[in-house]
Design a binder for these strands. Structure first.
Length: 554
RNA sequence: GCCCCCGUAGUUCAAUGGAUAGAACGGCCCCCUCCUAAGGGGCAGAUGUAGGUUCGAUUCCUACCGGGGGCACCA
């Protein structure tokens, strides 16, 4: 191909992009290269495509090559070539051996003393999926839950517990009760505007090492962590580390001193410390230390960046956060650059925000929808759905299936969407069990597994003379898998994988619906069973990367 | 006020600058003597407005309109 371009048109500097067309009428693979170089060589796209096609038609793996539309070269491969290519799809189902410098993926970021809300699903599930995909492709991944366990909120909470609590010690409160107290604090601020200042003072005391406050703080952390772990387990979310804000407590001062010395950190209003950016950056100053000398999240993020760069030498640092934090991370990146650090591997992976009808999902206002409640409702609805199906159910354990379907539906609703999109929370949408949904994937997998069980032994595919339209369609879809995984990783976009899995289900179900598999004649039967097995494998692998489990029977 | 993100069928979402803008849900109509009908097939239905760049724009640029977010002592 490259040779044809070079000898015929003297083009050496363009890489030929082969694509898999969306529509099977356009062949197995296609390229618009003739359109792209047309102007450069001064010939019509059709003329160029003509040369390409006639050169390609001689290849023995090519069944047919033709020009279509304004100048596409469309290629149909031979059945033998298509079937032979399935080996790479099979390989893509297996996790590669890990190597290279680590990739840090930071996500979820819950706040201590608050339960997870529905809005945490975005960063938690996208982060986990991205981390899973990296790991599958052979990257050494550090899954990092950076918890908000430091800051003025502890001052607020301490005041709230002593003012409005019922005298219990901190470790005896539930996370929900702590949240109520936190909300109460913010309501009371309207009556007493000194509360905020009091909270800041209490946090300063904690930061200065007050033993009583330290014990209080430790209790709250313990309570919160145990509540979190049950939810993460249900969501198939796990972490390698949860080094949190407090971990950087003693790592900030040296950096601040250095930065002051080098002039990056300057004095701001009221004795605070700020970083300034050039006019053209359009960024406001970045506050790195408060007037009272206490640190902020920005200070800890700077210390964290330093720690990660120095101690872990990662090739990438992906911080998954919602878009409201974009400016903060741009300021952070610019600050690190001013400090002379190399942050080329750093990327703030943005996700949209979740809104709930017209209310804001702010924890401070107390109208947060708790994630636990969402998951419970999801499983309840799945149980109802299973009951509707009555005798048709083949699942060995309906309760287990309900969990898989319910939680899967929630997760799929998130990860199947472009992460940058805002999500408006809606029960019916979130808990969809039909069409483009987790249960559709799960059902398709169970269907494929069922065929395989009945088929007995599955052997390698035999060569066939010709392929039906449905067979060719399914083959081509299966062949996309490897490329889809790479695309999902390079763009940090798990929905690319989700969309592909949905497409595979459609392709398989369409094939299944009017193509006999077990009753087919040899060698066709062997090929069809093999394709069914591969479909099941790809679905299971892909779904798991997206945190979703699939059953063998349902 | 300044800055950032988003506007695609009735609804929720897709579409590395490429072919006739794909799905799902909802609506209407078909398909179980056949490997699971939680499925398959069909019909109707969309790029906010006005310009620009390009052989070609949902995609890139400009303005406007509409929605969301951010802008130093919260994270």
């Amino acid at each position: 191909m490259q040779k044809v371009l070079s000898s015929e048109f003297g083009i050496d500097d363009i890489s030929v992009g082969w694509e898999r067309p969306q529509d099977s009428a356009h062949g197995d693979i296609t390229t618009p290269v003739a359109l792209q170089i047309s102007k450069k060589v001064g010939k019509s796209p059709k003329e160029i495509a003509e040369k390409i096609v006639s050169a390609l038609a001689k290849e023995k793996t090519i069944e047919k090559a033709e020009i279509a539309g304004p100048g596409y070269a469309n290629i149909w491969l031979t059945p033998a070539a298509l079937v032979a290519a399935l080996g790479s799809t099979r390989q893509a189902c297996m996790a590669k051996v890990k190597s290279g410098a680590p990739v840090i993926v930071e996500y979820s970021q819950p706040n201590i003393a608050k339960p997870l809300g529905a809005h945490h699903l975005l960063t938690t599930l996208f982060g986990q999926s991205i981390a899973n995909i990296y790991e599958h492709l052979g990257y050494e991944v550090i899954k990092w839950n950076y918890m908000g366990d430091w800051g003025t909120q502890f001052g607020k909470l301490s005041i709230a517990v002593s003012k409005w609590g019922d005298g219990r010690i901190a470790s005896q409160y539930t996370v929900d009760e702590l949240l109520d107290l936190y909300v109460k604090f913010h309501n009371e601020v309207e009556n007493d505007d000194t509360l905020e200042d009091q909270a800041r003072a209490v946090f300063k005391k904690l930061e200065d090492g007050d033993p009583e406050l330290r014990a209080f703080w430790q209790d709250i952390i313990t309570v919160t962590k145990s509540a979190l772990s049950s939810i993460y387990e249900q969501l198939h979310v796990s972490f390698d580390t949860d080094k949190s804000e407090s971990f950087y407590e003693d790592k900030m001062e040296p950096i601040l001193e250095k930065g002051i010395a080098s002039g990056v950190f300057k004095e701001g209003e009221g004795g605070s410390l700020i970083v300034e950016f050039p006019e053209e950056s359009n960024m406001p100053p970045y506050l790195v230390r408060k007037g009272d000398g206490a640190t902020l999240y920005s200070t800890r993020d700077i210390a964290q960046m330093h720690y990660r760069l120095e101690e872990l030498k990662p090739q990438e640092i992906l911080i998954v956060t919602d878009i409201a934090q974009k400016l903060h991370f741009e300021q952070l990146a610019a600050t690190c650059e001013q400090l002379g650090w190399d942050i080329t591997g750093f990327d703030n992976v943005l996700v949209g925000r979740m809104r709930y009808a017209d209310k804001s999902m702010s924890t401070r206002k107390g109208n947060v929808l708790r994630l636990e409640e969402v998951l419970t409702e999801a499983v309840r609805r799945a149980e109802e759905k299973i009951k509707e199906h009555g005798d048709h159910i083949q699942a060995d354990d309906p309760a287990e299936l309900a969990k898989m379907m319910g939680i899967g539906a929630v997760s799929y609703g998130i990860v199947s969407q472009n992460r940058k999109q805002d999500i408006v929370f809606d029960w019916d949408k979130m808990l969809s069990f039909e069409g483009n949904s987790a249960p559709y994937l799960q059902y398709t997998h169970a269907r494929a597994r069922s065929v395989i069980t009945k088929a007995g032994e599955v052997s390698d595919p035999k060569q066939v003379e010709s392929l039906t339209e449905k067979e060719r369609g399914l083959l081509n879809t299966l062949l996309k898998f490897e490329h889809v995984l790479k695309e999902a990783r390079t763009n940090n976009m798990p929905h690319i994988l989700a969309n592909f899995l949905f497409e595979l289900c459609q392709s398989f179900n369409s094939f299944y619906n009017d193509t006999p598999i077990l009753k087919a004649e040899e060698p066709t039967r062997t090929l069809r069973v093999y394709m069914t097995l591969l479909t099941a494998d790809v679905l299971k692998t892909g779904a798991q990367l997206l945190t979703i489990s699939v059953p063998d029977r349902m």
